[in-house]
C-alpha cells in the first residue's frame, strides 16, 4: 500500500474498477451478484476513505492557518472594538478555532471540508463582529450546524 494518500487513492480506484468489472460481468440476476455487491461495496468504502485521506492531507494546513488567523483576529477585535455583547461571538469563534486547531481534519468521511466551512464561518463572524456585535454569533452557529449535519451523515 502506498504511503502517499494520492497514490493510495489511485490504487483504490484501480481495484474498485476491477471489482466493478466483475460485478458488471455477473449481472443483477446471477446468483453470486449479492456476494460481488458486498465486495464492491467494501471497495467503494475504501475509495471513499482514501479520498477523505487525500482531502485531509490537502486541507490540514489551510484549516490550521485559518483557525490561527481567527484566533488572532478575535484578539484584535476584542481589544480594539471592545463590547460586552460582542464577546459572545468572539468566544464562540475562538472555541471553534481551538477545536479545529486541535484536529484540523476530523475522522468522518465528509469532515475535512466541513471543518473548512465552519472555520471560515468563524473567521467571517470574527471579522464582522465590529459591525454586527453579538449577532455575528449566528454566522458561527450556522457554520457549526452545517458541520454537524455533514458529519452525522
Amino acid at each position: 500500500m502506498a504511503a502517499d494518500p494520492f497514490a493510495r487513492l489511485a490504487d483504490r480506484q484501480q481495484s474498485l474498477r476491477t471489482a466493478l468489472r466483475a460485478l458488471q460481468a455477473a449481472g443483477p440476476g446471477s446468483p453470486d451478484f449479492p456476494a460481488l455487491l458486498t465486495t464492491t461495496n467494501d471497495e467503494v468504502e475504501a475509495v471513499m476513505q482514501a479520498r477523505r485521506d487525500v482531502e485531509a492531507a490537502r486541507l490540514t494546513t489551510p484549516n490550521r492557518a485559518i483557525a490561527a488567523g481567527t484566533t488572532a483576529a478575535a484578539l484584535i477585535v476584542a481589544v480594539g472594538w471592545f463590547d460586552a455583547w460582542s464577546l459572545l461571538s468572539l468566544l464562540v469563534a475562538v472555541a471553534t478555532a481551538a477545536s479545529v486547531l486541535v484536529d484540523p481534519a476530523g475522522r468522518r468521511l465528509w469532515e475535512p471540508r466541513a471543518r473548512t466551512t465552519v472555520i471560515t464561518a468563524a473567521l467571517a463572524a470574527t471579522l464582522l463582529t465590529p459591525l454586527l456585535h453579538g449577532w455575528a454569533t449566528l454566522i458561527t452557529a450556522a457554520g457549526i450546524a452545517w458541520w454537524a449535519w455533514r458529519t452525522q451523515r
Binding site: F6, Q13, L20, P28, G29, M48
Partner: peptide, 28 residues
C-alpha cells in the same frame, strides 16, 4: 426497477474511479 438501479449504481461507482479528489459534491 432493481436492475435499472443496479445499472445506475454501477455507473456511479464507475465514475468514482476517475473523479478528481476535490470534486466533493460529485463524490457525494
Amino acid at each position: 426497477e432493481y436492475d435499472r438501479r443496479a445499472h445506475e449504481a454501477i455507473e456511479a461507482a464507475e465514475s468514482l474511479t476517475h473523479l478528481p479528489a476535490n470534486a466533493e459534491s460529485l463524490w457525494r
